[in-house]
Design a protein around this nucleic acid. Sequence first.
DNA 1: CGAAGGCTTGATAGACCTCAAACACAGTGG
DNA 2: CCACTGTGTTTGAGGTCTATCAAGCCTTCG
Lengths: 256, 256
Amino acid sequence: MSGSAAALPLLRKLRSTFELTEAEERSILALPAQIRDMKRDQDIVREGDRPSQCCVVLAGLVCRYRVVVGGRRQILSFAIPGDMPDLQSVHLTTMDHNIGTLTASTVALIPHAHVNALITSQPRIAAAFWRDTLIDAAVFREWMVGLGRRLAHTRIAHLVCELVVRLTAVGLSEGLRISLPVSQEVIGDALGVTVVHVNRILQALRKEGLITWSDGILEVKDWPGLVRAGDFDPTYLHLREMPKLDVAPFWRTPVN
Amino acid sequence: MSGSAAALPLLRKLRSTFELTEAEERSILALPAQIRDMKRDQDIVREGDRPSQCCVVLAGLVCRYRVVVGGRRQILSFAIPGDMPDLQSVHLTTMDHNIGTLTASTVALIPHAHVNALITSQPRIAAAFWRDTLIDAAVFREWMVGLGRRLAHTRIAHLVCELVVRLTAVGLSEGLRISLPVSQEVIGDALGVTVVHVNRILQALRKEGLITWSDGILEVKDWPGLVRAGDFDPTYLHLREMPKLDVAPFWRTPVN
DNA sequence: CGAAGGCTTGATAGACCTCAAACACAGTGG
DNA sequence: CCACTGTGTTTGAGGTCTATCAAGCCTTCG
C-alpha cells in the first residue's frame, strides 16, 4: 500500500515551499501509507483523539474545524491535495480540533512511527515538515487578522485569493479558475459569518465583476481587483516562488 | 553575555510542555545570548525583516501583531517570559508580522546559527522547539474560534483564563492574581473590538463578580464562573500538567 | 411527484462601532 | 504650588455590520 503515486501531491506541496534533493524525495516516496477514500462530511480525526498516524490529502477538500457551544462551527483551515492537516499530531498527542472532509476525498494515512523515523534520520526533511507546520501557523495568523479586523466582504475576497494561489502553487488551478465544490455555508463557517450574509456578499463580488462561481467552479474575473478588495498579500504563504496570476493563461487570452 | 540566569524562564516554559533531561537543559543554558532591555511599545522585529537571531522574552510582556489598512492593529498573541515569539524565523526567513513590547521588557537574542546547531545535533531539543511552535499554532486556532464565533464578552473571559493558566504554568502568578499592566486598548486589539466596547464588557465582568482589574493587577474572583463565561477548555495549551486553579492559594483562604 | 439541500430575498433585531465629551490621574514646567 | 499636558477610563447617542427569522425558489434525486 505504499505509493509513489500516492505521495506525489505531498511532494508537489513540499517543493512549493522547500527545496528537496532527489534522495530526500525518494525517502518521502518510500513512506508506507494506507490509502482511504472518504465521502464528504466525514471526520478523519476528532477533538480529543490521540492519533497514531497522520494523514496526507491526496484528492478532494478537507478542513480543520471546531464546534462551539450553540453548535456553530468555525473552520480553521482548508487542506488541499498535498497538505498534511494533522502533521502536528506527531508532537501533540491530543487533538484539539477536528479534521473532516468537505467533499469526497482520498487521504493517505502514515503511521507516526514512520514519520518519526524519517525526521529523526533526515534533519532536512524534519526541517521541511517543521516549516510546513510553521506556514500553517502563518495562515492561521492571517485568518485571525481577517476575523478580527476585516469586513466580511474583504474576508471573502481574501479567502478566494488564498485558495487560488495555493491551488496554483501545487498545479491544481486552470489559470484563474479553481474547483470549489462546497456550499456557501462552508464559506461562512470559515469566515465567521452566516450563509445569508455570505450570499449577499457573493452577489456584490459578482456585481463588481471580481468573480463568478457556479457549479462548483470559481473563476476570478479581475485578479488585481480581487487582490485589492481582499487586502491580499501572499507573503504569509511563504512560497518559494509566487505563481504568476495577474496574466490569464495563454489559451484564454490571445494576445492579438 | 551567555547566561544561565537568562535562560531560566525559557527552561521553565519548555518544562511546562516537554520533559527535558538535565543534559538537554545544560545545552540550552549554554546558548549564547545577548540581553537587551527595551522600553514599552518598541518593536523587536518588523514585518518584512529577515532576522538572523531569535528572541526569548525574559521579563515583561511582548506581543505579535499586524496592522491592516486603516491603521487598525490585530494582536496575534501575547508572549510572556520564557516564550520565543519568533522561533519560526529559524525556518521562515521573512517575517510576516511584527513583534513588539507592550511593557518595558527584557529579551535575550540568540543567533540562528546557534539554534540551528543545537537542533541539528539534538533531535529531542528540536522536537521540544517544534512542539513549542505547534502549541503557538494551537493558540492561534483557539483565538480564531473566539474571533469568528464568540461574543466579545466570552472572548475577554477566555483571554483572562488563558493568561492566568499560562502565567501560572511558568510560576508567574500569585494564586488567581496576575500582573497585567496594559491598557484596555491592548485587550481590544487582541480581541478585535474597540476600547469602548472592552470597557463596557469589563464593567459587566466586574459586576458579575468574575474579576477585578486595577493598577495593572488582575484578580480572578470566581474561577469556575470565569471558565464558564469564557467557554474555556485548556486542552489547547497542551501543558504537561494543568495548574490547580479552582482552589485559591492557601494563604488567602483559611480552610476553617 | 415529493423531499431535501442549497440559493435567494425581505424584515427585524442585536452586537459592536464611531464620534464626542467628560473625567481621573500622573508627570511636567513655570 | 498650581496650571498644563497626556494617557487612559468612562459614558452617551446614533449608526453600521451582521445575525436571526422566515419564506420562496430552484435543482437534484429517489
